[in-house]
Design a protein around this nucleic acid. Structure first.
Lengths: 227, 227
DNA sequence: TTGATATCTTACCCGTGGGTAAGATAAAAA
DNA sequence: TTTTTATCTTACCCACGGGTAAGATATCAA
């Protein structure tokens, strides 16, 4: 897939030289924009803000993006890409439905602590054009359906106590999605701590009574790109 | 307390007559604004939009509010008022920690389906002045602490299985808060359905194994004002 | 009925921010 | 070195929306 993290240095360094390297610069803009969108919201973030943080001027941005909205959409695309990546990884990990749900929560929670991932759930969909919105909604729907099917599977194989999969999925997804509202990279807990604790706490709630939880101290690793 | 819902008819009817009734008109503006803020976000909602929906013109709004931000802040105040109201009601309902948590979730979920309640968690805090933000944050902190203390209480009295109260509170609050992101008044499920199902599902996860859940089909009623 | 006051409208100001035009400069190609 | 081309800057346009000034009109009290 695409989505390889290139820049490791602070993003403004991508523009110190005028060397022709569009890919790196494009990503630098995206990373900076994503961070500002999370700090100030999309609406309050000016293209001047983005440019200033990169030590360039606003019109320079238009060499890499056609509009402000295109920058936003690319953030969404990058973020949903990360999520989908995790999901396909989990699909391989065969196991009980409960195990899949746990792996899902862990992976998903991790993505919610990465800038692009946070953008997907934190930013206001109303800033997208109807076409872009449809695209993003498709991704989100896919995620929800995947989780719901894991829960259904768990009920059928007996690892999850019977419940309404739709409500359970809403509850789990809500708990995890909300992470992107309070998580701060400089905070007390690391992303992995949060992810594993959420996976543990939430699956514990689903687990069928009488059976032990499959991963008592479960910390499963997921691909962790981006700085 | 204050916060009595006055208007039951569509809010624009408050302005058909020029009769002097500031309280009703103020609330009509607030209700309309809250609804628009939820539909379009605060940033994209114009004061002209608000005025148009009330069949008046923009400057008329300035007879009732000093600025756009004051309207926003009043929405927050109304919403946090509703939440606090529910909370004090619950504090009276003595019982196990688990029962209190269940009552909390039920009441809180209900508030999250009411426009003013949704505003509190859905709207962007960045649109508030630092002074107003501090006020709102104080309310939110209080809510979080209350929930955490209920969980702690439950662990101590044995009704809740031992866990990290902070993480558990984050998970529960997240699940319930997220309701305001997908709930639609015209949707398939009623507010009460959602609230009772969430209360049931989430407490079931906390309940200490071996003991039956205190309210298997529990639907507890909470004061339900506003249309 | 009449004056006083609250209510609401028309017309306007102006800061802000997305986006563009046109030209300067540096990097790569020749 | 010279030419070409991508890169970036300065200066600008203009639509939009929060907020205001000043005046018209309905309501209420006397």
């Amino acid at each position: 897939m695409a989505r390889e993290a290139v820049a490791v240095q602070p993003h403004w360094k991508a523009f110190v030289s005028r060397r022709r390297d569009p890919a790196t610069k494009r990503e630098a803009i995206l990373q900076t924009a994503a961070q500002l969108f999370l700090e100030q919201s999309y609406g309050r973030t000016t293209l001047n803000d983005v440019a200033k943080r990169l030590n360039i001027t606003k019109p320079a941005l238009y060499h890499y993006f056609r509009s402000k909205e295109e920058i936003l959409l690319e953030c969404y695309r990058w973020g949903t890409g990360l999520i989908e990546e995790s999901l396909t990884t989990i699909a391989g990990h065969c196991g009980t439905g409960l195990e899949k749900v746990e792996a899902f929560i862990y992976a998903y929670a991790n993505v919610m602590t990465v800038n692009f991932g946070r953008c997907v759930m934190r930013l206001d969909e109303g800033d997208l054009s109807s076409k872009a919105l449809a695209e993003v909604r498709t991704y989100k729907r896919k995620i929800d359906r995947r989780l719901r099917s894991f829960i259904q599977e768990g009920i059928e194989d007996g690892s999850i106590t019977p419940c309404d999969p739709k409500i359970a999925a809403f509850a789990i997804a809500g708990a995890v999605n909300w992470i992107c509202m309070w998580y701060e990279p400089e905070g007390a807990r690391t992303a992995e701590e949060i992810a594993s604790q959420f996976a543990q706490t939430l699956t514990q709630g689903l687990a069928r009574r009488g059976r032990p939880a499959p991963h008592p101290n479960g910390t499963r690793k997921v691909s962790n790109r981006e700085s």
